[in-house]
Computed example of a mutant assay.
Amino acid sequence: AASTSELTEIVSKFPKILGIRKGKAMSVYYDFAKEIIKADKSFEHKKLCHSSLPHGRMQENKIRNVSVLRELGVPQRLLFSLLLSNKPIVCGKEKFEESLNKVIEMGFDPSSSKFIEALRAVYQSSDKAIQEKVNAYERLGFAVGETWEMFKKWPYFLNFSEKNILGSMETFLGLGFSRDEFTFMVKRLPSCIGYSAETVKKKTEFL
């Protein structure tokens, strides 16, 4: 049985573990969380042994993938939220590795939550879909380099369809913004594309 101090430390850092219904799964994740916390306390940032895990099972894939992310420098708080996630991002193998390599090549900082957001966005989109989004932004007046810079600022940027983007533009144009002002604003704050028409109207009326 776990000591009280060990139990309280792990549960306080990983409270979602209390929501696991299956005892066996809870035990597996608890032991893994314990290893992460213990390893992170060492000066050498000890590498966890995950290469010997069997392949194919979702639980084992998650543990292996979370271990890889930890080794890259993803913080505990993000690791533990991923550990209990049923999102495909941490449940696969080849697609996970491929997406992870792309995000690393893009220069995202693993210690930032944007790293996980970017990983999720890339994982959920095929190369073809991503290229179509880049082309859509290009048609709206954004250079390819500008599109990727906006993605780095706000990874959810790639989740918006061309219809969403056009709808956002029409909202701002309808409020008196010029097309150039809209593109300039989106370059500065890409997340404004995600604002609903109602939100934008209320904010501008208040101003």
Rank of each mutant, 00 (worst) to 15 (best):
R70Q: 07
I116D: 06
E205P: 00
V144P: 00
W154Q: 05
E138R: 13
V134C: 06
A118W: 06
M150R: 02
E198K: 14
L119M: 10
F96Y: 09
E198S: 09
F80G: 03
F157K: 07
G23S: 13
G174W: 10
L140R: 09
L83M: 13
G73R: 07
N135E: 14
C192T: 13
K202E: 14
A1V: 06
S99F: 11
N159P: 00
L175W: 02
D31R: 15
A136K: 03
L84F: 05
I36W: 02
K38F: 05
E97T: 11
S178Q: 05
C49V: 13
E181T: 03
I10H: 00
F177K: 09
L7S: 06
H55A: 15
K128L: 13
N135C: 08
R179N: 12
D127P: 15
K163Y: 15
V68L: 10
L119H: 08
P54E: 12
I89P: 02
Q131F: 08
G23W: 00
K128M: 14
L48H: 03
S111F: 04
P15Y: 00
L48M: 05
G23C: 01
E9R: 07
F184G: 03
K93P: 00
T8Q: 11
S27V: 07
D180L: 10
I130K: 14
E44W: 07
C192Y: 04
L48S: 08
W148Q: 06
G23D: 11
E170L: 10
E181K: 05
S196K: 11
Q124L: 12
E97D: 15
G19C: 04
F115M: 12
L78H: 13
G176A: 08
R21A: 14
L207R: 07
V103W: 05
T183A: 00
R120N: 13
L48R: 07
I104D: 08
F157Q: 08
R57L: 14
K114P: 00
K34M: 09
R77I: 09
S99I: 05
V134A: 11
K163W: 11
P88T: 03
S111L: 12
W148Y: 12
V144E: 14
H45V: 01
I63W: 05
